[in-house]
Amino acid sequence: MKAVLNNQQDQIGLTRRHTFWLRIRRDALLYILLLLPLLYIAIFKYAPIYGLIMAFQDYNIFQGTSGSEWVGLDVFRFIFQQDSFYRALKNTLVLNVLDLVAGFPAPIILAILLNEVRMARFKKLTQTILYLPHFMSWVIIGGIVYLMFSNSGMVNLFLDSLGLSKIEFLSQKTPWLVTYITVGVWQNIGWGTIIYLAAITGINKELYEASDMDGCSRLRKMWHITLPGIKSTINILLILQIGRMVSIGFDRPFVMGNSLVSEYSDVISTFVYRVGISSGDFSQATAVGLFQSVVGLTLLIGANYIAKKLGEDGIW
């Protein structure tokens, strides 16, 4: 009896292995295409994890990780004693919260409005114009911002021609924050709209047809059909956005910031650039990066847990 069972298990194992290799041969081209993104992730995402050891060393670029002195948590203690780090952390959180409040609903609203447009050519033209800023370098956008909002820029020249006082868009706290957030929304709104438009296309069209028969207005269809239909997508993107609360890109605050607003524009990414690249202290830069990753993961897990507790869709 045991011999029969073992023989059957061997046959099942052989069948599975045969099926596996058959699928590999059948979809060989697809697997080859998959190799490139897997190599990218392995080289640029997983391989650098080894470098985290620098956060616990007095790293010397000439001695490398194998020869540098081990200092344990001394680097973290030194960072947490710096007022400039807490200022950078506070500014990062403030800017990310403002981006979340102003920037997160914008592509949702825009996607719903574009979905209601019936003129196909106008819709495509509008989408193309809105997507373009996403592909522009922040260096170019920074130049545009300077030409538009500096003291001698187009906006202030226009205000001056009307006899109004100039606004210090780039050198005072509140105007700079408004400019920073507005430019960020303008740059990202078109790209975010793509995701929500794709989600909207997955909504059952029969729901709209039934609502038309019931005499529902467009506003009611948006509120009772479109928004609930993309709720799961909104939840997932919101959770991911919360997970990035302590992370912020380098280009935008560096290009738009200046010495007059450094108290508000100095964020974690510029702090890392200053202590890691400019000063050559790679241990501090690595420690701050590890701190961001740990806090970001904690926020992500916490946001996903709360969403599941509230009965909403989570990432997992």
Rank of each mutant, 00 (worst) to 15 (best):
W186F: 04
E168N: 15
V97F: 11
L177M: 14
P107S: 09
L95G: 04
W138H: 04
D74R: 14
D99S: 15
I129H: 04
L93S: 06
L238N: 09
F250R: 02
G314V: 02
F135S: 09
F169E: 03
G296I: 06
I230V: 08
Y31P: 00
E209M: 10
G296M: 02
I230S: 01
G280E: 08
N204E: 12
L34I: 00
L35M: 12
P175F: 03
M54F: 07
D266F: 09
E312P: 02
I144M: 12
L73V: 14
R17Y: 09
L159G: 03
S279W: 08
V145N: 00
F158Q: 09
R118L: 11
P107G: 09
T126R: 06
F56D: 00
D212N: 14
L100K: 09
P228Y: 07
Y31C: 00
Q81V: 08
I315A: 11
N188A: 13
R121T: 13
A285Y: 01
P48T: 10
I141E: 00
Q241E: 12
Y31I: 00
W186D: 00
L237I: 11
S152A: 14
Y273H: 08
V117H: 09
I129S: 07
M54Y: 05
L73G: 05
I61F: 14
E168C: 10
Y273I: 08
V139F: 11
R23T: 03
K123V: 11
V185I: 07
L14Y: 12
Y59A: 07
P133K: 00
V94I: 14
E116H: 08
D212S: 13
G184C: 02
S150E: 07
L22A: 13
F85G: 08
K90P: 05
S66E: 13
V139S: 12
Q127C: 04
A287F: 05
Y50I: 10
L35H: 00
I236L: 12
I315T: 06
G163N: 10
G280Y: 04
V295L: 11
W191H: 02
L238H: 11
L300G: 04
F56K: 02
